[in-house]
Amino acid sequence: MKKEIAITAYKCKKCGKLHYPYHDRCLACKSREFEQIKPQGNAKLLTYTAIFNLPWGFDQRFLLIGVAEFENKIKAMGQIKADSVDQLKVGMKVKPSWEPIRVQYGEDVYGLKFEPIP
């Protein structure tokens, strides 16, 4: 079953600056009042990498990771569903989903995944 993307961004009620992840004070005006915002629509890939020397907890050959910007301007890191960096380009559209990103203590940990949109 498709899961809802479970990240929340925070829009400053005073100056409108968007934050993800959470900050207790706005990065622009230091206000403490925020409106909770959910990411919307597809996203645009801003940068990416393929990591071949993985950290403990990842038993695979390599991992594609990038940062993408949603249609409502929220920026977030996620894993990328592709076979190689050759399929990726800065600025390309990607479809976000909420899927298992790793296993910890025998349990799936969920997070953002981005799939290139042809």
């Binding site: 993800y20 990498t49 990591i51 020397n53 993985l54 991992l63 953002l112």
Partner: peptide, 11 residues
């Protein structure tokens, strides 16, 4: 926002 994804400093 970063660590769970497997990001590394080289990444």
């Amino acid at each position: 926002a970063e660590y769970p994804y497997g990001i590394t400093l080289p990444g």
